[in-house]
Design a binder for these strands. Structure first.
Lengths: 335, 335
DNA sequence: TTGTAAGCGTTATCAG
DNA sequence: CTGATAACGCTTACAA
């Protein structure tokens, strides 16, 4: 039996409406009454019941976050940011881990809707028609992270993957590498796949190198896949002098394979990653990688969402945040 | 304007109580009426409003989880488990990241209470009187993870840290190591600190080795601290042949320092970690470590909590789960 | 077995 | 500026 607005009203000798007004600052209340009420609230340690409040306002102060994998450090850091700034706006996070499965994503999408979340942040490896349908059918504010969702008429935020891959590939060519392999995420699944490829291609163009399609591989986000790809390369004696991976994990998979087969990184092969997750620095050799402003991405995403919730931001668009090429010890210049 | 119980009642030509009864299966309803109602619910796609429901039942189907750091892979995996089994019991998780700060923890403790969560799982580096006070003053079901909280009359679950440290130290002595350093978490902060120390000491006893207190260091959970500790050891030419760290991160910090200073692991020094987080396998050399059944720990914690919520489990106690010594490449036998 | 009606703790409308 | 009072959508005695 915790204390309610009624108790406060009674003890302060005012109506519950007046109490409501002072706690919400919604309508003018004379100073002396206000003080009296505030004092009683203090004394009683009264806290408004958010459930009752939600029932009438239709606002839950809850934001749903659907992600494919909490244990992915990239996502963890994103979550940090989301959670932290949400708190400053007095929102709470309901966390949903989908494991990337469509079924589970759909489950959560519906769950969050019935839980009356005011908006959601959505991260998925694959974007499908089921998602589109959901987002179209509900006018729920949604922002997507690390994915350009303007086609769905949703806001989204990410770095410019084209530029990023272009930059690292370019750098490698400048350093005298002649043959470079690209291990990118996936085929159709990853929206940035095409951007990665284009950036990679463009760098070849810039440096007048022959673009060899057989040097483009599909790592499927997996360390193990990257490992296998490099193993094949070794067995076929097709090992290039540099490998660009579009994920730190895949870079590590590649390096692990190289090391396990007696090659040295970066002496024999240069390998670069993507994201600058924690492990990029922990690992030896430390990874050359594309650093994303992960925290900022999360922070902007959640701010964007809150703006949408408040109706302050009507037009949806994609936001690009700047990346940074971090040169560490896993790549070297041949010159 | 979503559809409510009233709409269903009207369309099915029954009272709202009847509808309520069929959705909750709370009181007998004649078969034909039940069928009629179910059909209407289907047709209308009616979903009960959980907020209204909570207001009257005082149940939120929400569980609060307070953790110090999402980006810690150990915690991430724990969260995985918690989230997953909570879902099967139809509970949702409200995630609170405290960064280990007491202020923030207290904030969340109170927040969760006013949000009417039905119970909480609490993870903290330091346990303080403020926590105790909170837990004593509220009868909220709470279970603590990776910490023995029986002193607080709370349930808790973890592996047996004494045994774990004993086992790895023992193994190292058996392998012919003579001097072993221990880098453990913290001083007063970590409840398991004493257990680690005792396990370490006991192993010396078992092998009739002189126990040198100056070989016990305080790594404060930090990779960097471990790095510095080893650096000192190197400078003082006091490097032992084996180092037991009570965290994978600290083990990696130690190895990084060794490698950066030209030592080889495990050729020159053996180093072991704790937890078997993902990085233990990714890293080269792969880490010898104590594997904890992290998923199980999380799963048991949440099940325990739900039992408590349902009043099925009255007596609080600490649950030990079995650990496993995983021998990989960062340690070697001297024999 | 079914319906009526009284809450749950707020906010919001409308008089005064 | 203040106070009744009607919602909000649901559960649950209490009657019928």
């Amino acid at each position: 039996m915790s204390i309610t607005i009624k108790d406060v009203a009674k003890k302060a000798n005012v109506s519950i409406s007046t109490v409501s007004r002072v706690i919400n600052d919604s309508k003018p209340v004379s100073d002396d009454i206000k003080m009296r009420v505030v004092k009683v609230i203090e004394e009683l340690g009264y806290k408004p019941n958010p459930v009752a409040r939600s029932l009438v306002t239709k606002k839950s102060r809850l934001i749903g976050v659907i992600i494919p994998d909490i244990s992915d450090p990239y996502i963890a850091e994103l979550l940090n940011a989301i959670e932290e700034v949400a708190k400053t706006y007095d929102y709470d996070i309901i966390l949903c881990n989908s494991y990337g499965s469509l079924e589970s994503e759909e489950h959560y999408l519906n769950l969050l809707r019935t839980k009356q979340v005011e908006g959601m942040i959505f991260l998925t490896y694959k974007l499908r028609t089921a998602h589109k349908d959901f987002f179209e059918s509900t006018k729920m504010p949604v922002v997507m992270v690390n994915r350009d969702a303007s086609e769905l008429n949703l806001s989204s935020v990410s770095v410019n993957h084209f530029d990023a891959v272009y930059e690292i590939t370019n750098k490698l060519f400048e350093d005298g590498h002649e043959r470079i392999a690209l291990i990118r995420n996936g085929k159709t699944s990853d929206v940035f796949g095409p951007s990665h490829l284009k950036g990679f291609e463009k760098a070849h163009e810039t440096h007048h190198k022959y673009f060899d399609e057989s040097m483009v591989f599909n790592g499927a986000f997996k360390l193990e896949r990257a490992y296998d790809i490099v193993k094949q390369l070794i067995e076929m004696k097709e090992l290039p002098t540099a490998i660009v991976a579009t994920t730190d994990s895949m870079a590590i998979g590649a390096i692990n394979c190289l090391v396990d087969h007696g090659y040295k990184v970066p002496e024999d092969v240069s390998v670069s990653g993507f994201y600058d997750t924690k492990i990029a620095q922990l690992y030896r050799p430390q990874l050359t990688t594309i650093k994303q402003p992960i925290y900022d991405i999360g922070a902007i995403a959640i701010r964007l969402l809150i703006k949408q919730i408040n109706g302050d931001e009507k037009d949806k668009k994609h936001f690009y945040l700047p990346h940074e090429l971090i040169l560490r010890d896993s790549t070297r210049s041949l010159k």
